[in-house]
Design a binder for these strands. Structure first.
Lengths: 329, 329
DNA sequence: ATAGTATGTGTAACCGGTACCGTAACTATG
DNA sequence: CATAGTTACGGTACCGGTTACACATACTAT
């Protein structure tokens, strides 16, 4: 593997000149440049990013920490982040934390070792101190789908409560009178926000009852079980707001098995707007701008990395009601 | 950010000694070690992987190139690869090639620059020369879901043809007489293999007709369109073998809209065994051992990296028939 | 004519580690 | 008691780049 010195020898110039050619910095004569490029070619020289990073003190690498890439929310996020990063010449390291603080700490250690330039972290188990600690080591950080209002941490979040309100209002508009909610795990902030939105509207209409709420796990299976429980307690349910699309799909299965037709007997709406919610019947949902979040997160991160001014606060993104078959007769 | 020299100064030892402590190599007195660790602690020193990689000539990083992480096949793969790699102390860089040779070359360049230790690539557009070129730069490579029989390249693949045979036989067993096939893009090798398996069985039974085949795009949308076309030509179709699960979901939608009940009127089977095939009705499918593939690929890669002997040939993995609701009355 | 600026290139000191080599004291062996 | 092995360190040349600084020359403006 050829090095910059090999090239410099072959081209009869100094390493500085070769470096200038590579980086298009400083003055280099056209003729010299040609000679250098020729030498690089014949040696099939590829500059080492490692050495470059070491000397230049930047790795052009960021990390994306997600709980589990298997949850379809996160591939969409990952895709957007990777696209944006790649366009800016950055590389993305993928990490699955599994909601496990231990694993998370472990990753943080690795990433510090690697001197990566920044982290985008979607985690509900993370502690604000960990982020601040990172910033102290001058590693930029952006949090997604979680926030820490009392700390100077840049966070990106959808308007979860507002979205929940939209969802429940939509069910009411469609004539539902007994509306259940399948919440996500309540230690997760967005779950609580969505629950709150649900509660708000239900109370407004004097329809609130704790037994209309079941806690799921954000997965198909949990939605399925929660729906079964709910049906046992309230066979007359005619509307369901699931805390995310996966649980909505689980609910759909449970309803199907219970012989309830969607949307005729029960109207169902999810949250997230993942691409795969194209089941039969197609799922109405509150769509988060997932790709937008990923892109924005990456751009905010870059600004931090470049020390450009950014407001280290929570940025809230609008959600959209997507009316599809599961709430339309 | 403290360096090894800072630590060595504070602990009154040489950098060599600190290095020995860090790597637990060579001889270090207990007392000295304690002093060094103490110094590392007070300076909150974190060794730089970059410098280490540069000196040690290995990056402990591998890359995973997939066409598109949005296709649910690939998160499962990514998850398995990341898990296996992480356990072995490796970091995974994620790349989306979008089936775009240009983007692919671009990534290959970046990865060479980074001196990563190895690449796992799931691509149908890649050329064997590119892989051999990598190996020449002593970057290990494993190919997934594609293969190059005439080159010394380690590849991992499911038994696609065999799986297709199983799928069609299953439909026959269920009493289907007019069985259509929605193939994946035919420039993709596994698509052709599956098509071949289908054709084989159909010919065996004298049921083959080219018009029973429609080409899809491995996505829901393409499956949907292909199914519509097929129904136009053959309203009497009573069995469908889709080239992957996403297209099967698309077909399901088309059938639903056409008023065909699954599985009563038409039996439907997919391919892949992605976790999300839990729609209603649940999809029968030929399950690939995706996680197994990811894990195996990573382990093979490691062996190559460590220069352990590995057979650079195509390794074939067994598939499994999962009978679920879409083929069961 | 002269200072000032633009152009072109080389030298060498970094970046933050690893690892080989040398030194030195202490212990074991014959 | 000579010799060799073990233990415990330090010195320093790498790894492959970047970049500040020095130096030289040519061109411009005053």
């Amino acid at each position: 593997m050829a090095t910059i010195r090999d090239v410099s020898k072959l081209a009869n110039v100094s390493v500085a000149t070769v470096s200038r050619v590579i980086n298009q910095s400083g003055y280099v004569n056209e003729v010299t440049e040609k000679a250098v490029r020729q030498a690089m070619e014949t040696l099939s020289y590829v500059p080492s990013d490692m050495a470059r990073s070491l000397a230049g003190k930047k790795s052009a690498t960021i990390a994306l920490i997600v709980p589990d890439i298997l949850n379809p929310f996160f591939p969409e996020l990952a895709r957007a982040v990777e696209d944006a990063a790649h366009q800016l010449g950055y590389t993305v390291i993928l990490c699955n934390s599994d909601h496990d603080p231990e694993k998370e700490r472990n990753y943080f250690g690795m990433l510090k070792n690697k001197r990566i330039d920044g982290i985008i972290v979607a985690s509900y188990t993370i502690h604000p101190q960990q982020l601040l600690e990172l910033q102290r080591q001058s590693i930029a950080a952006v949090v997604i789908d979680n926030h820490f209002p009392s700390h100077p941490i840049l966070a990106l979040q959808s308007k979860n409560r507002e979205g929940a309100v939209m969802a429940v209002r939509h069910l009411l508009d469609r004539g539902c009178t007994t509306i259940a909610h399948i919440s996500g795990p309540l230690e997760i902030l967005p779950s609580r926000e969505r629950l709150l939105g649900y509660e708000l509207v239900m109370r407004e209409h004097g329809m609130f009852a704790p037994s209309l709420i079941a806690e799921g796990d954000f997965h198909v299976e949990g939605g399925y079980r929660a729906m079964q429980e709910l049906l046992k307690l309230h066979p007359d349910i005619d509307g369901v707001f699931a805390g995310n699309d996966l649980m909505a799909i689980g609910a759909l299965k449970a309803l199907y098995i219970a012989g309830k037709a969607v949307p005729q007997d029960v109207k169902l709406i999810g949250f997230d707007g993942i691409a795969l919610a194209t089941v039969v019947p197609e799922l109405s949902t509150i769509a988060q701008p997932i790709a937008e979040m990923g892109k924005l997160a990456t751009h905010y991160l870059m600004r931090q990395i470049r020390n450009e001014p950014v407001e280290c606060k929570t940025h809230e993104l609008d959600v959209r009601l997507l009316v599809r078959q599961s709430t339309t007769d």
